[in-house]
Structures are given as C-alpha cells and as structure tokens.
C-alpha cells in the first residue's frame, strides 16, 4: 500500500508536467486544429535558454519568468511568421511544417548546447530532502510542481472565462468568421494562443528538467506522453488535458511497476496503447465534445 501511494505521488507529479505540455497542445489545437509536433522541442529549447540565464549567474526566480516571457514572444513569432502563411493549407502541409519546427529546434539545441546533459537546479527555496509522513516520503518539489499547475490553471481560468480578452480568444478559436464580423482581430488572437501555449510548454520543460537531465531529446518522450494525455482528455478541452496528464502519469507509474511485461523500458508503449484505444473507443476523449461531421 505504501508503495502504491508512493507511486501515485510520483506519477501525479510527472503527470502534472505531461498535463502542462498537453495543455499547450490543446490550446493550439482548439483554436487552429493543428497538432503542433514541435511543441516539445520548443519547450526544450526554452529550457536551454533558461539554463543559459542560470549559467550566467541569474537567479532562478528571475530566469524562469524571463524565459516564460521570451517563450511567449517566440510562440507569437512562430505563429505569425511560419504558421500563418499555411494556416489554410492542406493538413499534410501543416503537419510537415510543425515537423520542421521539431527538427529545427532539436538540431539547433544539439548544435548550440551539444548532446552532453546539463544539470538543472531545483527552484531556490525548495529543499531537496523529503518529508516523512508515516511510511510515506513526500518530495517537496513534487508539491511545488502540483502547486504551479493549480496556479496556472486558475490564472488561465480567470483569463479565459472572466476577461474580455479571454472572451475574444475563445470566440476567435470557436468561430473565426463570426469573430471577425464583431471586430475581433482573429489573427492576433490565434498568435496570442500560440504565445500562451509556448509559455505553458516552456514551463513544463523547466519543471521537468531538474528531474530528468537536460539534453536535446529530453522532451521527446514527454511529448509522446502529452499526446496521450491530450488524446485521453480530449484535444479541445484544456481541463481535460490536465486531468488526462495526471491520469497518464499514474498509468505509466503504476503500469511500469505492476505489469510485469512493461517494466521501465516499455512505458512508452502504454502511451501508444492509450492513444490508439482512446481514438478507437471515444475519439473526442473524456472531456472533448463529440463532433458530428457534416457532409
């Protein structure tokens, strides 16, 4: 039982990170129906930028917000420069362009920072040692990750549901043509969506870097888990992405321990199984809206 709880705690912490990146995927998919295959690599590159800041002597609490702002701006730039020209192009074109983003950021990171793993610090003020409650060890950093996720969700909820900008963002995503007619600058709303997504992804990268080592491919596996999370939660539901993320985190942690065959090597197969199973059984995911396709 103790081990089970321990696994759930660790799985939830990892799941929060998957959920964050899934959130980024969902924010973009919801507004533009693009699955951004480059999302993980953009996050990875942002994490390297943050590492550079830290390496230059900047404090954690300065470097991280600064990186988030840069990631936000970069997300907007990517949408304006690269995605907008192909926005209405056939879906193969868009998939290819986002794969181009994947290749580009991956190779750029390898080029600039080399493949040698870099240590990434815990946030200043978060202690390394764990607390013991009964038989269970609680790692402070896991709680921190959870708190960050909850805070971000709250901020996004207020932004989307309680502000005029949020209303515009939602409207532009749901019905771009009508939005234009009420005077919403739809193109900017889509770009802002990419910016928010890039920042959320960067956050996922910077939160996971202390746990796994920072190297150019460290987000690739996380991206697959995030795909599974977003598929499970529903590609058009931001809360679904987070719930899906936590679910996947636990499925992977528990499956790896209790299913003999999976072990630690095949955890990615679990993600594949989830993706295919969800797409077959309930393509809209747990929280997504079933869309009736009109002919």
């Amino acid at each position: 039982m103790t081990e089970f709880i321990q696994l759930v705690l660790a799985g939830t912490a990892n799941g929060c990170i998957y959920g964050l990146l899934a959130l980024a995927l969902v924010l973009i998919y919801r507004s533009t129906h693009i699955i951004n295959f480059g999302q993980g690599e953009m996050a990875m590159f942002s994490t390297y930028i943050c590492w550079s800041f830290l390496n230059a002597g900047m404090g954690y609490w300065v470097a991280v917000p600064l990186t988030l702002i840069l990631a936000f701006a970069a997300g907007i730039a990517v949408q304006r420069v690269l995605i907008r020209p192909v926005q209405n192009a056939p879906e193969l074109t868009i998939v290819i362009v986002t794969l181009g983003l994947y290749l580009f950021f991956n190779s750029l990171a390898l080029w600039i920072y080399s493949g040698v793993p870099k240590p990434f610090p815990l946030p200043t003020g978060i202690r390394q040692a764990s607390w013991q409650v009964g038989d269970i060890f609680i790692i402070p950093y896991h709680l921190f990750i959870f708190a960050v996720l909850i805070t971000l969700m709250a901020v996004l909820y207020v932004l989307f549901q309680r502000t005029k900008l949020g209303l515009g963002l939602r409207a532009a995503a749901a019905q771009p043509a009508s939005s234009r007619l009420v005077g919403i600058n739809v193109n900017w709303m889509l770009a802002l969506g990419w910016g928010i997504a890039a920042a959320a992804g960067a956050l996922a990268g910077m939160l996971s870097a202390p746990v796994v080592q920072l190297e150019p491919n460290f987000m690739a596996t996380i991206l697959i888990f995030s795909f599974a999370s977003a598929t499970l939660g529903g590609f058009d539901s931001p809360p679904g992405a987070v719930v899906g993320g936590i679910a996947i985190g636990n499925i992977v942690a528990l499956g790896g321990r209790y299913i003999e065959f999976i072990g630690t090597q095949l955890d990615i197969v679990l993600a594949l199984v989830v993706i295919v199973a969800v797409l077959l059984i309930r393509p809209a995911g747990l929280f997504g809206r079933q869309v009736v396709q009109r002919v």
Binding site: I96, F104, W111
Partner: peptide, 19 residues
C-alpha cells in the same frame, strides 16, 4: 559542417519547400 547541421538544414528546406 556540424553533427546537427543535416537536421537543421532539412528543417529549413522542408519549410521553404512547403511554402
């Protein structure tokens, strides 16, 4: 040029070709 140059170049060519 660099061990990661092939992928970087492919990425850029890919996007240019798509446009």
């Amino acid at each position: 040029i660099n061990k990661s140059a092939p992928d970087a170049i492919q990425a850029i060519i890919l996007i240019v070709v798509m446009y």
